[in-house]
Structures are given as structure tokens and as C-alpha cells.
Design a protein around this nucleic acid. Structure first.
Length: 408
RNA sequence: GCGACCGUAGCUCAGUCAGGUUAGAGCGCCAGGUUGUGGCCCUGGAGGACGGGGGUUCAAGUCCCCUCGGUCGUCCCA
């Protein structure tokens, strides 16, 4: 009996992995084109980083972290999200200047697995740290939108502003008061949050306080926050990005301030339809013990995105080589080399099976060209078209084919 | 966390309700035949501790309990 996978983990392999490869490659080039450089942070950290970054009263921290002591008894946790680690990296390198970075990697949350929710899942994201400008917000949202469009996911964009440390206080006070008065409308696991973290209650679908009684953050925004949000919207309008304001969009992590946004799939059947989320986190640097530093970013769940994305072409070989008579699989590699050099995807049977079996494999591989190697020549077939090649001519043929198949 | 349903070949499943000879099918895989050297069709073959543990019984894939996984909902989020 083969050892099982831990609950909530998956192996992403062929044929599905070809879409991952495409999406991740696209992510690399797209984020680079917006001027974001690569950052790689540890997948495990001292637990404290997330407690202080994400927020101690947040469910992600209180219930969903993979936390364990290391051999010296220090509390470590598998990262449940990427932003805290990136901000820490920024602070450690001095905490000044503009830092635009992109990341890609697995995150971990100890939850009940479900469609679109695994214990290990993959996120890509960007962080733009060091600029308080609305232009940073707009750029990050535009990048997010372009990414989703390129993968072919249809979404609605929701945005909101949570205000900042100046205007949020009055809002929270009023919100607490209203929630305290309507305790019986709240679900049991959120009663204690009324004082600790009332914003989180807005994100709960079971808690049903009277929506008309709830204060709207919009009427508490200070002039600066109001102006910032206005300019973000103007920027999005200018780019033709469609969005809708959602007064209850508070997002899952505690570090957000001002702009928050969320892209929700319009096609996903599951309840986990949020495919990308982010916002501005101007207070995070201080929460981690650093000098103040503004920042804005997002994270996107690749697993969910690919669930919502169209199937994609799959990964077919371009050329399948068939060895005839005395030609061995090892010798085929000499024929494959110049083709591969040109960028073509080349495969062949490794086990010296019958010609019939090799042709069957050729069919299954989806290869457009079949190259039958016998003696010193190779007959290339494309449907019923045939062409005889010798080793000297392989390079030229391969280059033309590579251009034709878009591999060069 | 909680609830419902599910777990038999590589894959999709039948068989479980009414326990009983060597546990089945389709697809896939391997070999052969046919063929335009492959795609259709035909023949043959390999492949299964019935998720794991305990119990009831003369007898358990089938009934009972536990456990581990999966799916969906709830909750939450990417």
C-alpha cells in the first residue's frame, strides 16, 4: 500500500500541470513587465511574524496555522500568506525606498479541505512597498486584472476603502456600539470579536445585524482617505477597469488600510469564488516593529484560478521519433538533439518496443510530426505528407518547424 | 470545528439493501491479427491485501463500532 498524501494536499501532474506551467510562466513575464522583481521568502517563519503581521485575533492565525515547535522549542509556522514575510524582508534591508517585488509559491492553512480550498495551495502575488500614492494602488489592481484576463478567468472586481488610523477609530467605535446592541443577531463564534476585531464580523455570512443600522465607513473617511479613494477610482476609470464598491469588503487579514479589493469569479460553482484579493497595508511595517512604510499588493490563488479558467490546449509533443530495425532508442537521441535544440518538443519510446507500439505511442503523444528513423535517414510525416531528411538537414528543418509551431 | 454522502483493478464504476463456490464490466495498458508501418476493428494477456483496525457469524466487499481519507454543505478565505 502506497503511503497516502496528507489531508488537503495534492499532486499537480500531467496533464493538468501543463496549464500550471503556462500560467506561472505568464505570471513571471507579466509581473516583470510591470517592473516587479522576484522575491523568495521562507515557507516557514517564527510564528510571531504572522501573529503580528496578520493579526492575533484573526482566524487565519488563531485556527488555521500549521504551528509546531522546532528542535529547540521555538514556535515556527508554515506561512499562511506571503505579505508579512515580504514586508519583513523590506524592513531588514533598510526599510526605505520603493520596492516592487513579485512572488510565487505554496501557502499553508489548516482548514477543512473543499473544492478550491486545500491545506497547501499556491499563490502568486506582488507587493509594492514604499509609495503612498494612489498610482501604486491602481498599478497593482491593473496588474491583477491583466493577469486574470490573460489566464481567461471572468471576474467581478469589488473595491472599498477601510480608511486609515485617523478616521477608522470613530467608525470602529460606532460599529462596536451597533454590534453590541445586536448581539443576538451574531453567530456564537463571533460574539467575542465585537470588541476585539469588529471588522471581521462584517465578513461573516451567519452574523446578521440589521444592515440599515450598520454604519458605512464611507461617511467616516477623512479628507485624505476620501481623496485617495477618489483618485484610485479615477485611475481605474481611466484604464477602463470595471469595478463595484462593496461597503462590507473588509478582507481577511487585519493589516489592510484604505484600499481593499477582491476579484470574484463569475463562473466558479463553489463557494470559494474569490480568486484574487489584496489592498493597501500602511500600518503593517510598524506592526512588525519597523519604521512606517506604506505598501499595497495582492495575492492570487492559482488553484482556484485554474479551476475557473478554460481547459487550455494541453501539452502535446511536436515530434515523435520511431526507431526502425537496428536503430536503438539511444541512437534516436542523436536525431532528437538538433530538433530539441531548435525548441521543438521531441519524444520517443525508450524501451525498444515494436514499431506498431511506437506508432501507437506517437498517436497518443499528440505529436504533429512522426519521424521514422531507419539507417541513415529519417522520414518525417505530417499527416500524409512525407519528407526524407538526413542528419545534415535536420537543423534547417527543425528551425522551420519550430517557427511554424511557435516554439522558437 | 460541525453535518450529510462516499472509499472495490491505473481510471470510471457494478456487486453492499435480502452475508455463501476461484470478486466483475468498460476504458486504459501489454502482445498478436487486420491496416495506408499508428489512429477503426478482432483475439489474447497482465493487473485487485474490496482505505485501515476491531467485532458479529460456520461464512463478511456485503452487517456493527472505531479510525483514516475523499466529496459537498456550513464556516472561512486565495
Amino acid at each position: 500500500m502506497v503511503i497516502r498524501l496528507p489531508k488537503g494536499t495534492d499532486v499537480i501532474g500531467p496533464p493538468q500541470s501543463s496549464r500550471w506551467r503556462e500560467a506561472l510562466a505568464m505570471w513571471e513575464s507579466l509581473s516583470a513587465s510591470y517592473g516587479y522583481e522576484l522575491v523568495i521568502t521562507p515557507t516557514f517563519e517564527f510564528t510571531e511574524l504572522f501573529e503580528r503581521g496578520v493579526g492575533e485575533t484573526n482566524e487565519v492565525v488563531t485556527k488555521q496555522m500549521y504551528t509546531f515547535p522546532d528542535r529547540r522549542g521555538r514556535s515556527l509556522s508554515l506561512r499562511p500568506e506571503g505579505t508579512a514575510g515580504v514586508m519583513r524582508a523590506y524592513l531588514k534591508k533598510g526599510g526605505t525606498g520603493l520596492w516592487k517585488v513579485a512572488y510565487s509559491g505554496p501557502m499553508f492553512r489548516y482548514e477543512q479541505p473543499q473544492g478550491g480550498r486545500r491545506r497547501q495551495f499556491w499563490q502568486v502575488g506582488v507587493e509594492c512597498i514604499g509609495s503612498p500614492s494612489e498610482a501604486a494602488d491602481v498599478e497593482v489592481i491593473a496588474l491583477a486584472e491583466t493577469f486574470l484576463a490573460k489566464v481567461g478567468v471572468e471576474t467581478d472586481l469589488l473595491i472599498n476603502s477601510l480608511g486609515d488610523s485617523r478616521c477608522r477609530g470613530a467608525y470602529l467605535a460606532d460599529l462596536k456600539e451597533v454590534l453590541a446592541r445586536s448581539r443576538d443577531a451574531l453567530c456564537e463564534n463571533h460574539l467575542e470579536l465585537v470588541d476585539l476585531n469588529p471588522l471581521r464580523i462584517l465578513d461573516c455570512s451567519t452574523c446578521q445585524p440589521d444592515p440599515n443600522a450598520l454604519p458605512d465607513i464611507a461617511s467616516y473617511w477623512c479628507p485624505d482617505c476620501r481623496g485617495h479613494f477618489r483618485r484610485v477610482r479615477d485611475g481605474l476609470d481611466g484604464l477602463g477597469v470595471k469595478y463595484r464598491r462593496s461597503a462590507r469588503l473588509v478582507r481577511g487579514l487585519d493589516y489592510y488600510s484604505r484600499t481593499t479589493f477582491e476579484f470574484v469569479s463569475t463562473t466558479l460553482e463553489t463557494t470559494q469564488a474569490t480568486v484574487l484579493g489584496g489592498g493597501r497595508y500602511d500600518g503593517l511595517a510598524e506592526a512588525l516593529g519597523g519604521k512606517p512604510a506604506p505598501g499595497v499588493g495582492f495575492a492570487a490563488g492559482i488553484d482556484r484560478i485554474l479551476m475557473a479558467a478554460p481547459p487550455g490546449p494541453g501539452s502535446a509533443l511536436d515530434v515523435f521519433l520511431v526507431a526502425e530495425k537496428p536503430v536503438t532508442p539511444t541512437q534516436l537521441m542523436e536525431w532528437a538533439a538538433p530538433l530539441r535544440q531548435a525548441g521543438l518538443r521531441v519524444g520517443f519510446d525508450l524501451d525498444g518496443r515494436s514499431v506498431k507500439a511506437q506508432f501507437r505511442a506517437a498517436t497518443r503523444s499528440g505529436a504533429k510530426y512522426v519521424g521514422v528513423v531507419s539507417g541513415l535517414r529519417m522520414e518525417v510525416r505530417e499527416g500524409y505528407d512525407r519528407e526524407t531528411l538526413f542528419k545534415e538537414g535536420l537543423g534547417d528543418w527543425a528551425e522551420k518547424a519550430a517557427i511554424k509551431e511557435g516554439r522558437s
